[in-house]
Amino acid sequence: MADPAVLAVAEHRRGELREVSFELLTAGRELADAIGGELHVAVVSGDVESHADSLNREGVDAIHTVPVGEEFDHSVYQGSVEALVDAHDPTTVLLPNSVNGLDYAPAVAESLGIPLVTDAIDVAYDDALTVTREQYGSKVETTLAVEGDRFALTIRGGEWPAATGTGEATVESFDVDVDPSDSGARVQGYEEVGGGDVDIADADVLVSVGRGIEEEENLELIFDLAEAMDATVSSSRPIVDNGWLPKNRQVGQSGKVVTPDVYLAIGISGAVQHVAGMKGSETIIAINTDPNAPIFDIADYGIVGDLFDVVPELIDDFE
């Protein structure tokens, strides 16, 4: 087996590979081609055989399975990845920029003494690695030149298409001396949050409110509009963080993914974590004072204006 240019590490939770795992294969293949080498994939814990089957898509050269433990445990992942890097000498360690990815990628990079770039939205390699990422809440993009001959990268979900097809990867079990029972951070269980009387994922029309609403008492305006439109109220993260609405109203990466016929975003700037939860909506309409707000990038209709002027007029129209 040749040395891999890229070692990508899949992510799964409660028996299912997460979508970003297949996106890693696409990003990994691109990068491996640019560097000139193989794409290897690691799958750690859980039903590694069945995951390896699913991950054996076009462009994957080898899959290493580490059949230790069931669910994500950062010490098992870290130990496995470090041992795989030691054994196979990849140029790039490619990980998802997920909550669990960020729970071990920095430790792997620190322990291996290699540079880390997180949340990549594009990568290029021409004798050296260049990574594109966002800064200042998506207002600018920057490119970073990375020094060194080995590096760790985490990629943002949804930026690369998922790999398809069937591959001809060799699948090998990898022996590593890690024991989940030694872990200093022990997972006790999981809990679904955001249950309750309202299921925003079921609504045909969502009136969604964000930071632009400014004060808790102003939410009344949004509920009045929702009532006039026979719609359901949802929100972006800050409204829930403030305790103004319960968790079951939150749209986004850590909340619910919604796909209503109409999504009316009011005072929501459209941070990437929010967009991940609503971009599949049929029609997206945004009301925001900032004409450069990223929400307009995915909106079908927009009003650049003050919600406190527009919403009362809209309520009048529907009443």
């Binding site: 939770r13 997460r18 994500f72 997920s98 909550v99 669990n100 729970d103 200093g184 951070a185 022990r186 997972v187 006790q188 269980g189 999981y190 809990e191 679904e192 949050v193 955001g194 968790k247 939150q250 990466q253 850590s254 909340g255 619910k256 993914v257």
Partner: peptide, 16 residues
């Protein structure tokens, strides 16, 4: 602690 995973799932973890 609870770790906030994606999709409205929280991981309950005991950390030394």
């Amino acid at each position: 602690v609870r770790r906030e995973l994606e999709g409205g799932v929280e991981e309950l973890t005991e950390v030394d």
